[in-house]
Design a protein around this nucleic acid. Sequence first.
DNA 1: ATTTGATCTTACATTTACCTTAATTCTTTT
DNA 2: AAAAGAATTAAGGTAAATGTAAGATCAAAT
Lengths: 239, 239
Amino acid sequence: MEDIYQSRLLIVDDEPELRKMLKDILQKDGFLRIFSAATCQQARQVFNQEHPDAIILDVILPDGDGFSLFREFRSVSPIPVLFLSARDEDEDRLLGLGLGADDYITKPFLPRELMLRLKTILNRVYFPFVPKQEVKPVFQLGDTVIDLNKGTVTRGDNSTTLTAKEFALLEKLYENHGRIVTGDSLCRAAWGDNLYSYENTLMVHIRRLREKIEFNPSQPRYLLTIRGLGYKLVSGEDI
Amino acid sequence: MEDIYQSRLLIVDDEPELRKMLKDILQKDGFLRIFSAATCQQARQVFNQEHPDAIILDVILPDGDGFSLFREFRSVSPIPVLFLSARDEDEDRLLGLGLGADDYITKPFLPRELMLRLKTILNRVYFPFVPKQEVKPVFQLGDTVIDLNKGTVTRGDNSTTLTAKEFALLEKLYENHGRIVTGDSLCRAAWGDNLYSYENTLMVHIRRLREKIEFNPSQPRYLLTIRGLGYKLVSGEDI
DNA sequence: ATTTGATCTTACATTTACCTTAATTCTTTT
DNA sequence: AAAAGAATTAAGGTAAATGTAAGATCAAAT
């Protein structure tokens, strides 16, 4: 279950008191990961380093304006942004919203309203109304074709189907192919956030998966184990 | 490609002029499917018949209030709703947003602002922001590329993988590249806050790390030891 | 130069994470 | 109810990663 309180939030404002106030009320409400920045410069740095899930952005900053910064961020990622502005000018509001901001609030504002609006945005992010188009990847490992729509693994003429766990694991691995995925993260993908009994269980499933996707399961070429760190799926090419 | 202008919109307001005005500006902007209703009764009917994708909902209606209607709709579907209200009362606004409305606008409003806010909502519906997964740094030491996502060290064609301890140490060193990191701090990064047996252990791991990232491990150019203070990773450039 | 303490290096011992297989339990299908 | 399929548990085995120790080297200080 996705949880909006796990979101990484970035507050960009040059007034220390306001930053503190926002951070306080958000923390009090249960948000755990709140970063803040006083300048565009800082904001860029935190953005690149912490990869926030949403930004509360002041329009006027010491070393630049929020609109430009917004454009910068949006050129890289469609991250949700809520503008804060000291001036309640129609033009500014229309500009901000026209650029594609998720909301535009003018100071002074009700802290509670800001929080509700932020939560609305995050909710839409995590629980989108239109279900995401369910087209799953089809890819190739060597001469083996894996179709996550059908849940099949085909090499030449013989074809097997993936079980639920195998599917979940492979999907997660493929989503991050080329990168290390921790065992923990894999377990979460297959069993959810609750406790998963044996850590060995994961290994057994990995083994079974290897039996289906590897030529020699004992000497894997695609689903590699990275001792002490996790597993990694390599050279998966989309087709 | 999903197109927000294909959205089916429902306007619920008892003032005929306002309905017409909204419909006109939305149509002028390019929305094709706009339905309207003057009462709760009508709204229910259109809702069930036309299955709109978003609703613009007046708070005060002849035969009931918008909040109740909102609850009705939302109990059936997580449809986006933008409230319109004649009264600019903080309480109402907080109530509406608190119920989970996507936006809350008070009359009189700028038609253009309403449209922008509506489009923002629809955009989020059709193009949801998917939070980025954790991205670890990739950087270069001389002609050696280190990818902490993959846990690899690549120089030219030969590539090695980092072990768990090496990974932890290098990550910590990179986080503070250019600065001295104390041995203590490195140990904490790799072994946790509990006691770590031999201080020599760290040196051995540093050595092993150097064997992977340095050209000549005995004359390090990147992972330097600062006698009496700790270690320092230099000239690590993000790529 | 000599001493001293810190850091390096290497080889070896140990541990731990992971693998594998098979038996058992749970779930779904017929 | 039986059977098949899937998931979990358990236990023994293995190699890679880590830890240890001891001698070598270095760099600063006297």
